[in-house]
Write a protein that binds this DNA or RNA. Structure first.
Lengths: 213, 213
DNA sequence: TCGATAACCTAATAGCATTAGGTAAAATGC
DNA sequence: GCATTTTACCTAATGCTATTAGGTTATCGA
C-alpha cells in the first residue's frame, strides 16, 4: 500500500509523477482522448489531488514542455561554442536539434502536435523559448553573410524560414509516422541541398545576366 | 419563424449550413472550444438534427475540408497547364497555393491547425489528396533535372521536403498570427533563394574541390 | 386521402473536467 | 510533549457537453 508522502518531498515527487504520466498518455493517445482520471491514476493519486498541483488539463499541457525547451535553449550555446564558420554551425545546429528530438520524442510530440495548435500557445513561456531557439539562426546567417561564406545579400529571415520550415517538416512527418525510421536518413544530402541556397557562388554570374527567352 | 425545409432540398441545405457554421466556429474558437450546440444553433437546427447529417463532432472536422482540398487538386492541373520550365512551374505552384490559402482561410486554418494533429488524419480522404498535391512537385523536380534546368543529381524528395516545409511554415505562421499581414510579402525573394538550392550552377565547381581548412 | 418516409424536435443518458468539503498525517509553536 | 496549523490527499458532488431514444409533424408517392 502506498504510504503518504512526507510533505517535504511530496510536492516535488507528486508533481513529477503527474507530469511524466501526462506526458506519456498525451503522447500515446493524444490530448483529447486522455482523461484527467487516466493521468491521476497513472500517477497514483486521485483526480482532486492533481488539481493541487495544476490548474487543470490544459495547464498541464502548457507546462509539460517548459523544462525540456528551457534545457534545449541552455544547451544550444554550449553546443555551438568553438565551431568555426556559418555552414559548420548550421550543420551542427541541425544535427543537434534532431538528436534532441530523437532523445525526447514524447516532449517533441506534445510540442509539435498538440501545443502549437493550442490557442494559448503564443502566450506561453515555451513559445518565447522556441522563438529564441530559432532566432539563433539569424545571427549565424548574418555572420556567414559578412564573412563571405554565404551570399552577401542573404536575407537572414528568409534563410531562417527555409531552414526552420524544412526542419519542422521532417520532424512533423517523423512524428506522424510514429518514429518508424531514423531522422538522420539522407540528412547530409538534405543539408547540402539546402545550404546551396545560402552559399556564395564560387563563380558568380555577371551582374548583368543575359536576358534569355 | 423558420419554415420546415421541403425534403427535396433540405438535406443539402441543412448539410451545407452545418458545414459552414462548423467551419466558422472551429476557425474562430478552435475545435475543442466549440460545442455541438453552438454549431447546430448557428445552423438553425437542434443538436439531434445535426446527428442526422454527421456521425459526430469529429466526423464534422474530418469532413469539412474534403471539398476544398478536392477542388484544389482539380484546379492544380489546370493552373500548371501550358507553363514551360521547372522553375516557372514551381513559381506558379507557390503563388497559386498561397492565393488559394488566402481565399479560403477558414479551410486552411482547419487543415493546418486542427486536422493535421488529429490522430485519424492519416486515414482521411483529405490526407490522400494533400499527398497527391505535394507529389505533383516530384514530377516537376524530375523534369527540371532531366532538362538541365535543375541540378542533374537533384533528389526530388529532398527538394520537395524543402519546398513543402518552407511553404507550410509560412502558412502556419500566417495563420497563427491571425492573418494580419500579406502572405505575399517578400515572396519573390524567398522563392529565388529557395530555387538556388535546386538550380544547376551555370559555372559548376570542379569535381575535386580543393580541401580548405 | 392514406400510409410511409423525411426532417426535425424535446428530453434523457453518460462521460468527463472541475470543485466542495472533509480527514488524517506531518510539521510547527510553545 | 501537547495543541494547533498546515499539508497532502480523499470521496462525493456539480455542471457542462457529446451522443442517443423516442416521438411529432410535415411532405410525398400512390
Amino acid at each position: 500500500m502506498a504510504l503518504r508522502n512526507s510533505p517535504k518531498n511530496a510536492k516535488e515527487n507528486a508533481r513529477e509523477r503527474i507530469i511524466n504520466s501526462a506526458k506519456k498518455l498525451f503522447a500515446e493517445q493524444g490530448y483529447q482522448k486522455t482523461t484527467v482520471v487516466d493521468i491521476s491514476r497513472q500517477a497514483g493519486l486521485s483526480e482532486a489531488a492533481l488539481y493541487e498541483y495544476f490548474q487543470g488539463k490544459e495547464d498541464l499541457l502548457l507546462t509539460i514542455p517548459d523544462l525540456w525547451v528551457s534545457e534545449l535553449l541552455q544547451d544550444l550555446d554550449e553546443q555551438l561554442f568553438g565551431i568555426q564558420g556559418a555552414v559548420n554551425k548550421l550543420r551542427k545546429y541541425l544535427w543537434w536539434y534532431l538528436r534532441r528530438i530523437e532523445q525526447a520524442p514524447l516532449d517533441a510530440k506534445i510540442v509539435y502536435l498538440f501545443l502549437k495548435t493550442n490557442a494559448n500557445f503564443m502566450n506561453t513561456e515555451v513559445y518565447t523559448n522556441v522563438k529564441t531557439l530559432y532566432a539563433y539562426l539569424l545571427s549565424i546567417f548574418a555572420e556567414g553573410s559578412q564573412s563571405g561564406e554565404l551570399k552577401p545579400d542573404l536575407n537572414p529571415r528568409l534563410a531562417r524560414d527555409i531552414f526552420v520550415g524544412t526542419m519542422d517538416h521532417i520532424v512533423t512527418r517523423w512524428l506522424l509516422k510514429d518514429m518508424s525510421y531514423s531522422l538522420f536518413d539522407n540528412l547530409e544530402n538534405l543539408f547540402e541541398l539546402m545550404v546551396d541556397a545560402y552559399r556564395a557562388h564560387r563563380h558568380p554570374a555577371p551582374e548583368t545576366a543575359p536576358q534569355e527567352v
